[in-house]
């Protein structure tokens, strides 16, 4: 699965989508309404209470948008692919992937590369840009670079967790319920981490490092004090994502090696 091959695939997927142009546009419109709903509820909440844990509306909007943007990036090459793995393992259709002369993981994620997240990207990027203008941040080269690296890392954390959940299919066949749990847990990072107790903060930092997706990078960029951590610790953020993703990838490949077809 080389890069030119991947881009060719994306072009084909784009063509496929555009066959049903009205349908695709309707989906985009619908998802913008759905996520707009989330933004509106948080906006109404802050209208009433001014701040949450010292974060005002543009700051929370910035935080939430990084979360949504990185989720969309990560999910485009992992969610549907990993969710459907359960069905493929159950029916035995996954076997056909193993006889192809390519890395099964790379083939699976590229073949299923999902353009459906374009709406998530549109709404989260727009709100993020709006928030950045409101916040009047100093856009030094370092800050821009840091934001880009953090977004990549956040996408890899999301993709890593979903890949890990997908690999559960090889052992238990069913994994859908873990996705449901993941979506519940993801709600934690719609709000600043200090809202939650110490135990949750530790869990979201070490066990399931969702706090690195948006809270830590946003807090550093907005110069919020994080337990008096020194500034250099901000550079942990871009490292966590690739590490998570690498662990998940190893686990997934390990699962494939253990895999015994359930279908007949």
């Amino acid at each position: 699965m080389t890069l030119p091959l991947f881009f060719k695939l994306v072009r084909l997927l784009m063509k496929e989508r555009m066959e049903y142009r009205a349908d695709f546009l309707l989906s985009i419109f619908a998802q913008i309404i759905a996520y707009g709903g989330d933004y509106i509820v948080i906006w109404m909440f802050i209208q009433r209470f001014d701040t949450i844990a010292g974060w005002n509306w543009p700051e929370i909007a910035f935080l939430y948008s990084i979360g949504l943007f990185t989720y969309a990036l990560g999910a485009s090459f992992s969610f549907v692919q990993m969710r459907d793995l359960e069905e493929q393992v159950k029916n035995g259709t996954f076997d056909s992937l193993l006889i192809k002369p390519v890395n099964p993981y790379l083939f699976l994620i590229s073949r299923g590369f999902n353009l459906g997240y374009i709406a998530h990207i549109l709404i989260s990027a727009s709100v993020m840009i709006w928030a950045i203008i409101q916040l009047d941040l100093k856009w030094t080269l370092i800050n821009v670079l840091y934001l880009i690296l953090s977004v990549i890392s956040g996408a890899l954390i999301n993709a890593g967790i979903m890949t890990l959940i997908g690999s559960v299919s090889f052992v238990w066949v069913r994994s859908g319920f873990l996705f449901n749990l993941f979506f519940r847990l993801k709600e934690f990072i719609s709000f600043p981490l200090p809202v939650f107790g110490a135990l949750i903060q530790i869990l979201l930092t070490i066990v399931m490092p969702l706090a690195f997706v948006n809270y830590y990078p946003a807090a550093f960029l907005l110069s919020k004090d994080i337990l008096g951590l020194p500034t250099w610790s901000m550079w942990f953020v871009p490292v966590v994502g690739p590490f998570c993703y690498w662990v998940a990838y190893r686990a997934w490949m390990g699962g494939v090696n253990k895999y015994q077809s359930a279908g007949g």
Binding site: D23, L26, F29, A30, I33, G37, I40
Partner: peptide, 18 residues
């Protein structure tokens, strides 16, 4: 009519959220 129940469910979900 629309043959796209996902889009309609998303919209309903958004309205319910708010």
């Amino acid at each position: 009519w629309f043959m796209n129940h996902f889009a309609l469910s998303w919209m309903l979900g958004g309205l319910l959220t708010i």
